[in-house]
Amino acid sequence: MELQIEDSILVRDYISGDEMALEKLILKHNQRLSSFIYSKVLNRDITEDIFQDTFIKVIKTLKKGNYSEEGKFLPWVMRIAHNLIIDHFRRNKRMPRFEGSEDFNIFSVLGDDKLNAEKQLIKDQIDSDLTMLIEELPDDQKEVLMMRIYRDMSFKEISENTGVSINTALGRMRYALINLRKIIEKNNIVLTN
């Protein structure tokens, strides 16, 4: 039967500088502590993380000389683990995490509005083509169209800016669009994504 060294002796030896004593402590309580953590979190990876964090706190406290030996090393370590488990659940509650499975992919219901790289390239090309087509328009129509579409101005603002009536501005916009369509049709240009 293997002789179990008392925790208090191992702790004393570790504080004195014997790193082997720490190894004996960890190995002695590994299963008990890991099983306790696992029984709460039911996940191996999280169990290992909490186990690690628990012993990091233990190591720091012992090395700083902040531990007072009262024969309760294991209950103390279990309490640290217990508090870390609570912290883990509080964190997860604040930031719920969804893990997909083989049968269900969350992205089938959650959409992403952003264009993918290919569609973004096509859109950029269309924007560039459209800018060149607008340059083909007569100046007065081009001016109204640019103000309306690119500067988001109202026709009232456009008429004040250009010194013409609102009706004239509206008419120039209408002809701008008609002429743009004619140019597109004449040159068989495709401007869709």
Binding site: L22, I26, Q31, S34, S35, Y38, F51, I59
Partner: peptide, 17 residues
């Protein structure tokens, strides 16, 4: 279930110490 933390984790803790 009775489980144990991996030897790699234990080794890390010893090196950390």
């Amino acid at each position: 279930k009775l489980i144990k933390t991996s030897p790699e984790k234990v080794s890390f803790l010893l090196k950390y110490s």
